[in-house]
Design a binder for these strands. Structure first.
Length: 185
DNA sequence: GATAAGATCATCT
DNA sequence: GATGATCTTATCA
């Protein structure tokens, strides 16, 4: 079942842990690239200094202020693309960064058993062949990049929280426990 | 564990 | 002109 706009039109911090165990799917012609989402980070609202949106609406960040269920893709450090899904109502800037994905195995209803982990947002984009072409596109079959729920049940025990990575400049926002990930997968 | 440097460029000031 | 939602490698503790 493909996750649609209504799934993303909700509190970012409520959605973020729910994305764990969902599948990121990329279709290129007849080929599919897919993997189970194992780590995400939430960037929430106009005041979160770790979020690009805290500097106000600019040509780059306007997609964060737009409709939920769209992709926000940008280049950091001159070499890595990062993939985010826009959340919350139009006008409120928020997104979830997809940091890690498990691939190369059929989980058969489990979050374990993957033979390869793609760790880090830069590597996720490289593996899924994602670049700025997807920026401002919607997450559905038409764009060729979407998120699916395959009915894997996630136990609250499997979900860990921690501070976000690489945002030490963000003042009091730096320690917000808005990173969600699976432990021991 | 913590901290740092280098690669390399779109974005913002 | 400065900087970063990264990644790798290195050094210190």
């Amino acid at each position: 079942m493909i996750l649609i706009t209504s799934f993303f039109n909700d509190s970012t911090l409520r959605i973020a842990p729910k994305l764990l165990g969902k599948f990121l799917v990329r279709k290129i012609g007849k080929r599919r690239i897919e993997g189970i989402i194992t780590e995400v980070e939430a960037y929430v609202g106009p005041y979160d200094r770790a979020s690009h949106a805290s500097r106000g609406k600019t040509p780059r960040t306007e997609v964060m202020f737009g409709k939920p269920g769209y992709w926000y893709v940008y280049l950091v450090y001159g070499m890595h693309h990062c993939l985010n899904i826009i959340t919350e109502r139009e006008g409120y800037p928020a997104a979830i960064l997809i940091r890690s994905v498990g691939v190369e195995a059929d989980p058969r209803g489990s979050i374990r058993g993957f033979t390869q982990m793609i760790t880090g947002p830069g590597r996720v984009c490289k593996y899924f062949k994602i670049d700025k072409r997807f920026n401002k596109m919607s997450a559905n079959k038409k764009s060729g990049l979407w998120i699916e729920d395959r009915g894997i049940r996630i136990s609250a025990r499997d979900i860990k929280r921690g501070k976000r990575i690489g945002v030490d400049y963000a003042g009091k926002w730096r320690n917000k426990p808005w990173r969600f990930f699976f432990a021991n997968v």
